[in-house]
Deep mutational scan, measured.
Amino acid sequence: MLSDEDFKAVFGMTRSAFANLPLWKQQNLKKEKGLF
């Protein structure tokens, strides 16, 4: 599990902003970052 700081560094957004994205968009971002 990423820390909040690492999460923001990897995804360029906060966890709450990420959580507001549609599920497909979350999955695409995870795949792009190799976290899926």
Rank of each mutant, 00 (worst) to 15 (best):
A9S: 11
K25G: 04
S16G: 09
L35W: 15
F11Q: 00
M13L: 06
A17P: 00
R15N: 02
G12A: 03
T14N: 06
D4T: 03
R15E: 03
M13E: 01
L2T: 06
K8R: 10
F7P: 00
L2V: 07
L29E: 03
P22I: 02
G34A: 07
F36P: 09
D6H: 09
K8P: 03
M13S: 01
K25R: 11
K33C: 07
A17G: 03
F11W: 06
F11N: 01
L35T: 08
K31E: 10
K31L: 10
L2Y: 08
N20L: 14
N28G: 08
F11A: 01
M1P: 13
L2N: 05
R15Q: 06
D4E: 11
N20Y: 06
K33N: 09
T14K: 02
K31G: 07
K33Q: 07
V10C: 09
K31S: 09
F36I: 14
D4L: 03
K30F: 15
K33V: 12
K33P: 04
E5M: 08
G12W: 02
K31D: 08
F36M: 13
E5C: 07
N20G: 09
K25Y: 09
E32I: 11
R15I: 06
S3N: 10
G34D: 08
R15L: 06
A17K: 06
M13W: 04
S16L: 13
T14M: 03
A9T: 13
K30V: 15
K33R: 09
Q27D: 12
G34Q: 08
D4G: 04
K30Q: 13
S16W: 12
M13D: 01
W24K: 05
S16C: 02
N20R: 13
K31C: 13
Q27P: 01
A9M: 12
S16Y: 11
N20C: 14
K25Q: 13
E32L: 11
V10L: 15
V10K: 09
N20P: 00
G12P: 00
L29H: 03
F18D: 01
L29V: 05
L2Q: 06
L23V: 11
G34M: 10
A17S: 07
T14R: 02
K31T: 10
L35Q: 11
F7Y: 06
G12V: 00
D4W: 05
L35R: 08
F36E: 12
W24R: 04
V10H: 10
S3H: 04
D4R: 03
L23D: 07
M1T: 12
F18P: 00
W24P: 04
K25H: 11
A9G: 07
Q27G: 05
E32P: 03
K25A: 12
F11G: 00
E5L: 10
G34T: 07
M1S: 12
N20A: 15
D6F: 08
E32R: 10
K25N: 06
N28A: 15
L35K: 07
E32K: 09
F7N: 00
V10M: 13
A17V: 09
A19D: 12
L29K: 02
N28K: 15
F7T: 01
A17C: 13
L2R: 05
N20T: 12
L23W: 13
K8L: 15
E5W: 07
Q27A: 13
A9C: 14
L35V: 13
K33W: 05
K30H: 08
M1Y: 14
F7Q: 00
V10R: 08
E32Y: 08
D6N: 08
A9E: 11
M13G: 00
F36L: 14
F18M: 03
W24M: 05
K33A: 13
A17M: 10
P22T: 03
K33S: 11
Q26C: 01
K25I: 13
V10Q: 07
N20D: 12
L23H: 10
F11Y: 11
L29D: 01
M1D: 14
L21Q: 02
D4K: 02
M1L: 13
F36W: 14
R15Y: 07
P22W: 03
L21K: 01
L35Y: 15
M13I: 07
K30P: 02
L21E: 03
F36H: 11
V10Y: 09
A19K: 11
S3Q: 05
K31Q: 10
K8D: 07
T14W: 03
Q26W: 01
G12D: 04
L35C: 15
Q26G: 00
Q26S: 02
N20I: 09
G34S: 08
W24Q: 06
L35E: 09
R15D: 01
N28F: 14
K31R: 13
F36K: 08
G12F: 02
R15V: 06
G34F: 09
Q26M: 02
W24T: 05
F36D: 13
L2K: 04
M13H: 02
A9W: 08
L2A: 05
E5P: 05
R15P: 07
M1G: 12
L2H: 06
Q27M: 13
G12S: 03
A19S: 10
A17N: 05
M13Y: 08
A9K: 14
L23E: 10
G34R: 08
L2G: 05
Q26D: 00
W24I: 06
F11D: 00
R15F: 05
K8I: 14
Q27T: 11
E5A: 11
A9H: 11
F18Y: 05
A19L: 14
L21R: 00
E5N: 09
L23T: 08
M13F: 06
D4F: 04
G12Q: 05
E5V: 08
W24V: 06
K25W: 08
L23M: 11
W24Y: 07
R15A: 06
D6T: 07
L21G: 00
D4A: 05
N20W: 05
P22A: 04
D6M: 11
M1F: 14
F7V: 01
T14S: 12
G12Y: 03
N20S: 14
W24A: 06
A19E: 14
S16A: 14
E5F: 07
K30C: 15
Q26P: 00
D4H: 04
N20E: 14
T14L: 04
E5D: 11
P22F: 02
L21V: 01
D6R: 08
K25E: 15
V10F: 12
N28W: 15
G34P: 05
Q26R: 06
F36S: 10
K30L: 15
Q27V: 14
G34I: 08
K25D: 09
L29G: 01
A17D: 13
Q26L: 03
M1H: 13
L29F: 04
M13P: 00
S3R: 05
A17H: 06
M1V: 12
A17T: 08
Q27I: 15
M1W: 15
S16K: 13
K33I: 11
P22V: 02
F7S: 00
S16N: 10
S3G: 06
K33G: 05
A9I: 14
A19W: 08
A9L: 12
L35F: 15
V10W: 11
V10G: 01
K8G: 04
N28P: 01
S3W: 03
P22R: 02
E5H: 08
K31V: 11
K33F: 10
L2M: 12
K31H: 11
K31F: 12
P22C: 02
K31N: 10
S3K: 06
K30A: 15
A19R: 12
K30Y: 15
K30R: 13
F7H: 01
R15S: 04
K33H: 12
K30E: 12
Q26F: 02
D4M: 04
S16D: 12
W24G: 04
A9N: 12
M13K: 01
G12R: 03
